[in-house]
Design a protein around this nucleic acid. Structure first.
Lengths: 153, 153
DNA sequence: GTGGATGCAAACTCTTTGCACCTTG
DNA sequence: CAAGGTGCAAAGAGTTTGCATCCAC
């Protein structure tokens, strides 16, 4: 049903190579290192397929273009064999994200503050929550320290 | 410097009339009840001015078009007199939001779970956070109860 | 060889901008 | 009457889609 094209592989390896949360243009850039003629449309189309397969998940942060991350599925490589017996798509990848104000990179957080049902007025039913943290990632914080007395000699 | 046009007033009163968090098209709809010939461009332009004045704030939720809310400024009506002596624009309106899955309306939450600095890896500096809750608002939860044994007779 | 996949261009949503005209002060 | 505001249309970002061609099976 689904063909193993160089493009599909290139899109998938953008994720496995970087292990990061990527925007469509970032995926395109990575994929072009493997298949230079790949187009943005194909990236979006493959991303849709991977989303439908549950291989990746869409990450939407406030005021940001959509990003995509690999879901924490245990098995199978990017080889076209898998056929998602259980289409339990959105599985259990409930994360939150950290957005670095300096490098713009998005990092996955593995902790969760809980459902926060106590924040809402009476009568409201909380079904899900999203948390986005902003600040400096370890690398950028190290590169531009606020006033660390030690290194700024 | 800034003129008091019917359109500016119409845009502002969309907020004061509804007291809600509104998208640009929603503002347009409300404003058209006062000034029928007002255009979307003017709405966006007035919204930009109001943002710059600190009268309103942009509300961006994941995967949603931008919304705008009145900031909790204590004084002055929409009359053009104010001239923001302190351009402390982003003031202290730190809120979080609840997005109703049923009616799509966005509600302001006044509680805050705190900075959540413990969610990030070592070396990361958290500067701000955003929380979005999803579920059913009181009205929608009441209209479509899950399985409340009392009313579903 | 056939049907699914690709690349390009066009369309679509949301938002911004250029420009000629109009209105406020 | 001049500066700023308005409406319209066009331009941009981000994403999707139509279509003829291409290539994996």
């Amino acid at each position: 049903m689904q063909r193993l094209t160089r493009q599909r592989n290139a899109v998938f390896s953008a994720f496995s190579d970087t292990g990061r949360v990527l925007t469509a243009p970032e995926i395109l850039a990575h994929a072009r290192e493997i298949v230079p003629e790949i187009s943005l449309s194909t990236v979006y189309r493959q991303v849709s397929l991977l989303l439908a397969d549950g291989e990746i998940a869409k990450v939407e942060l406030p005021g940001e273009p959509a990003r995509y991350e690999v879901t924490c599925k245990p098995a199978t490589q990017a080889d076209g064999h898998r056929q998602s017996k259980h289409d339990g798509h959105e599985a259990d990848h409930h994360h939150h994200y950290f957005h670095c104000a300096s490098c713009g990179q998005v990092f996955l957080l593995h902790a969760c503050p809980g459902p926060m049902t106590d924040l809402v007025p009476k009568g409201f039913q909380v079904k899900s929550h999203e948390v986005t943290l902003h600040g400096l990632c370890a690398t950028c914080a190290d590169a531009a320290p606020k006033r660390s007395s030690s290194k700024a000699h």
